[in-house]
Design a binder for these strands. Structure first.
Length: 433
RNA sequence: GGGGAGAUACCAAAGUGGCCAACUGGGGCAGACUGUAAAUCUGCUGGCUGAUGCCUUCGUAGGUUCGAAUCCUGCUCUCCCCA
């Protein structure tokens, strides 16, 4: 790829929501510097940021220079565009830790190190905001943007509208100006001419381009990508257990793999374009194959494979596939019992584990007391009972029919494990010591 | 500063003295069907207890009452309008 077809490729992938006139010409003209902002509220990114990461990666692959900005300053304020509540100020130590974590993750995708002219950079807006006084800021920056202009942004209008119950603090109102200043700063110091981001950022980004134009008469451009959605209307990137993180400590490679494998057909068609680097021709072929035999779930498998390798490793992928086969294959209690211990443990690496001492069950223990008492697999006994009544609980791949069932040492797999399953997908391992 | 409206479970939203652990919708969880998909249908969705019973909950603190989410008082917070 080169910088000529960057926009064309994005278009094909359905990754352009809005683009400012002149952007394409600028990108064709020369190597261009662009930035995307990331939120440093955690030391890891999650899949919600993934589309943006891939956007930066494609940008670098196309020969341009990407900057990843972490919002140490803006992260404290809270963007009214999101539903985000007022944020807490992060102390500098936490911020630095988060920054390092995020950089390490981005390094898997972007080239920060080599000598290429378009190597990636990471910046933190806290560095240039922390010593900027309020007075200086409103004099140098605030002067160039009218309140009328700021009020016309959707994010602001929504919060001022009658149906809004929230109101908006001055701090939140100022957000677009602070973010706009980031763009101006990068424009002045790094020759950055383009800001990219999610579609909800359009208003904030254009405040930046406007600021650059009015203050310096400079050129600046914008591209936003559509919000990644799910066909069923749910939030992308969440599971019952919370965010899907890129950090293997927070989301195991197995869970990560499972997350993508569970993508619906409709979404898989979109996601494979957005989240992988597979070229258009091959994707067309995959989609066609998939529509012929949807039960094979070709798209989901490929999506999960590509991403697990990219975010984790080939080895992690193999383990995840192996574990998935055993956990979701036509396993019975017997076939589980046949697994040798080593395989068994490696399969369950990504599954939540609990420990219990052997004395507790040697004389038999009610299943409810076990799972919601001795071991906190479930937080409440009532909930567990309801689950059993609804037929949603299995032990060692066999359905538990009623809540009076007792578990004894004869139920142990390999003489020391119990496999608990809630519903179709959630597995838990109890290790008897 | 003046006037008005309001605060109910994850969210939205009913309830205005006992029939309220609280209508309904969304979300979530589970079951059936399937392909670990979608759609659809069904059940569950404060805690403890075997389905009876008990305990804690309707912003917060008190009060009236046999009895309060519902009435009264103080407090906190939110929104709207006028200055």
């Amino acid at each position: 790829m080169n910088f000529k077809d960057f926009i064309e490729d994005l278009n094909w992938r359905g990754m352009i929501h809005d683009i400012m006139p002149g952007t394409e010409e600028q990108l064709k003209k020369e190597m261009t510097v662009a930035y995307i902002g990331f939120d440093p509220t955690s030391d890891s990114l999650h899949v919600g940021s993934f589309a943006q990461i891939m956007l930066l990666k494609r940008f670098q692959l196309a020969g341009h220079k990407p900057i990843a900005l972490v919002g140490g300053a803006t992260g404290m304020i809270g963007d009214p565009s999101g539903k985000s509540q007022e944020r807490n100020l992060l102390d500098e130590a936490t911020l630095n830790k988060n920054l390092e974590g995020i950089k390490a993750q981005l390094s898997k995708f972007l080239d920060f190190d080599s000598d290429i002219p378009n190597k990636a950079e990471m910046v933190n807006n806290y560095d240039w905001m922390k010593n900027y006084t309020f007075l200086e800021f409103i004099r140098d920056i605030g002067k160039h943007i009218t309140v009328n202009y700021m009020m016309s942004k959707d994010s602001v209008k929504k919060r001022l509208g009658e149906e809004s119950k929230q109101g908006m603090s001055f701090t939140e109102f100022t957000y677009q100006l602070v973010q706009g200043y980031d763009f101006l700063y990068l424009n002045e110091h790094k020759n950055c001419k383009l800001q990219m981001g999610g579609s909800d950022q359009w208003g904030n980004i254009t405040t930046g381009t406007e600021l650059i134009r009015r203050k310096n008469g400079g050129e600046a451009y914008a591209i936003t990508i559509p919000l990644v959605t799910k066909a069923d209307g749910g939030k992308f990137g969440k599971t019952e257990s919370g965010n899907v993180w890129l950090d293997s400590e927070k989301t195991t490679p197995y869970s990560f793999y499972q997350f993508w494998l569970n993508t619906s057909d409709e979404d898989a068609n979109k996601y494979i374009k957005i989240f992988t680097l597979i070229d258009p021709q091959e994707i067309e072929t995959l989609i066609e194959q998939h529509s012929k035999e949807p039960h094979m779930r070709i798209l989901q498998k490929r999506l999960a494979e590509e991403l697990t390798v990219m975010v984790h490793s080939k080895k992690d992928l193999e383990n995840a596939i192996e574990a998935s086969k055993i956990l979701f294959g036509k396993g019975t209690t017997e076939s589980l019992a046949k697994l040798d211990e080593k395989t068994f443990l490696s399969v369950f690496e990504g599954v939540p584990q609990f420990e219990l001492s052997k004395e507790k069950i040697i004389n038999g223990l009610g299943i409810v007391d076990l799972l919601a008492g001795e071991v906190n697999v479930f937080p409440s006994k009532g909930e567990l009972r309801r689950l059993i009544q609804g037929g949603g609980l299995s032990l060692n791949n066999a359905k538990i029919e009623n809540a009076d069932v007792k578990v004894a040492s004869t139920d142990l797999l390999n003489n020391k494990y119990l496999l608990v399953q809630k519903g179709k997908k959630d597995k838990y391992l109890i290790i008897i010591k």
